[in-house]
Design a binder for these strands. Structure first.
Lengths: 207, 207
DNA sequence: AGGTATCCATACGCTTTTGCATGTAAAACG
DNA sequence: CGTTTTACATGCAAAAGCGTATGGATACCT
């Protein structure tokens, strides 16, 4: 086979990752062979082993194309007024997260990570999920603590509890949606649910 | 090998299922061979192929040992007074569900179904999860509708929304706990969160 | 322009796992 | 008590998938 230009090589690498996503979603990670991925991209296993060390390495590369830490979502809002309205910051960050998730690549990769792969070699999807949850839950706690100090939170709801409630709500919604994304839009449903939940926990204006 | 009595044969069948649970939890479903399961139960593959048609059949048998539909949890309460207190019925049913889930076998099998298996042959764990969610969410909706009619629900929260909020909350908590059950007790945390959430949605006694 | 590194296809050996076929000793049955 | 069926263990053939070694044509560099 003839050597390709650098741009072409990079393109085949992306094509392999795209093919891997589709096959992983369709047949699960463990049940798809490198041969299947290569064929689906119009290549052979040789291409795969050139660009990636093995299946775990390919999997890692696939994950690295999508990353969205909660903190970044808040900072991306970039509105100095939000420091004084932590509940609003939480709401907008959630909405921003929902927007990201509706992009096909983000949705696919997260669906793979959560629903279509088991532990294999050095990849532990549960540990990765724990990291994601840990990170976003920590950020939520900070904002709810801030809200409590400002008196924006109902005084019978400690900030820790508020963070846990919202965290579980988001997690449940996330899983439900990934399981069958065509049934509803996580952007619309998520916006509704988060708004409702926050309004339940917000201090009534009278006090 | 000598033939065993019928009771002994049934015992080895259970032993094989137990071994399968442990190996599936530890290494994932796809990565454990029938040989590993048999050896871990002190048997050979011959025993496995005698009791089960193949891996999918064994998997199905494993699932069939644990079943807990939401409706049964409510009926098991068997308290005629609860018909007049739907929110309390929901709370107690959730608590009862948490109790079931803390039993090792229930926890293990659900963890396998949700976190340690992909699609394989005719088994589709996502479809099973959808059934479970659909079933429990439907029951929740009924009870919240009942609560709304009785005026037990805040009038700014439609019963559908209340059901979705609680459903997502339960789902998120469930996934978090299964991911690492040693970190907290789903019975304690679940009781706390459900109580808090229901109290947020309950109509204030003044009205 | 020549040499070299790159990008990928092809081929080979190896391990793992599956499904079945066969063997067998004791339980179950009449 | 003899026969049949049960409840496995053992052995074998086949396929699948992985990792690597090799080959080859061309882009890239100096």
């Amino acid at each position: 086979m003839a050597r390709k230009t650098k741009a072409e090589a990079a393109a085949t690498r992306e094509a392999l990752l795209d093919a891997a996503e589709e096959m992983f979603i369709q047949h699960g990670v463990a049940r798809t062979s490198l041969e299947q991925i290569a064929r689906h991209a119009g290549m052979t296993r040789g291409a795969v082993y050139w660009h990636f060390k093995n299946k775990a390495d390919l999997f890692h590369a696939m994950l690295q194309r999508v990353r969205l830490p909660f903190q970044d979502l808040v900072e991306a809002l970039d509105d100095p007024e939000l420091a004084k309205k932590p509940l609003e910051a939480i709401r907008l960050a959630c909405i921003s997260g929902f927007e990201h998730l509706e992009r096909p690549r983000y949705r696919r990769v997260h669906a793979i990570l959560i629903h279509h792969c088991e532990v294999f070699s050095d990849i532990d999807p549960l540990a990765m999920q724990n990291e994601m949850v840990e990170e976003s839950c920590g950020a939520l706690r900070d904002y709810f603590h801030c809200a409590a100090r400002l008196g924006h939170l109902r005084d019978d709801i400690p900030p820790e509890l508020a963070a846990q409630l919202l965290q579980s709500l988001l997690g449940g919604l996330f899983h439900d949606w990934l399981r069958n994304y065509e049934r509803f839009s996580i952007y619309e449903e998520g916006t509704r649910l988060v708004k409702a939940q926050l309004s339940l926990m917000r201090a009534s204006p009278s006090e």
